[in-house]
């Protein structure tokens, strides 16, 4: 492996660690917002650990970067394929289907404006019906952790 590649791998390992720790920190924040203390705690510990690794011992994160570089060609082709599939199935195909079913009025400016006006518009109701788990979440808890007391 050349010197340039080594530098690339070292920098890549550090960046990978930073990105991974950021993602994990965001996930732990999400868990805390949804009252999952255990999930938030575990993820934040892992995030902090990854951050420390990437800052002080990025050599330990070299392996995933090497694997990534080795498989980059295949990953690149897969990404291209996935992008094309997403573009076709999520945008072109549904749009064509909608126009064929509802007519071109469906994509008229006025209709789009009406659709945008009320985002997350529910078909019949805006009441959010609570599931059993959500009802238990609402029952009682500490500031961050969740203690489920209603076990009916």
């Amino acid at each position: 492996m050349t010197c340039t590649q080594d530098i690339l791998v070292a920098v890549g390992a550090r960046c990978f660690g930073l990105v991974l720790s950021t993602v994990l920190a965001l996930l732990s924040w999400y868990c805390l917002l949804h009252d999952s203390m255990s999930g938030g705690f575990v993820l934040s510990v892992i995030a902090f650990g990854t951050l420390l690794l990437s800052l002080f011992s990025s050599g330990m994160l070299v392996m995933p970067v090497r694997v990534f570089l080795a498989l980059w060609g295949k990953i690149y082709i897969c990404l291209q394929g996935a992008f094309l599939l997403v573009v076709f199935f999520l945008i072109i195909s549904p749009l064509g289907l909608a126009i064929s079913v509802f007519g071109s009025e469906f994509v008229s400016k006025g209709q789009i404006r009406r659709n945008r006006k009320y985002r997350n518009k529910a078909p019949g109701s805006y009441w959010t019906t609570l599931s059993d788990t959500e009802r238990m979440y609402r029952t009682l808890y500490r500031p961050l952790s969740l203690i489920i007391v209603n076990e009916k």
């Binding site: 006006k117 009320y118 518009k121 529910a122 019949g124 109701s125 805006y126 009441w127």
Partner: peptide, 11 residues
Amino acid sequence: DLKEDGSFRLD
């Protein structure tokens, strides 16, 4: 946007 069941979304 007011629904029949009294639920609503403010614009």
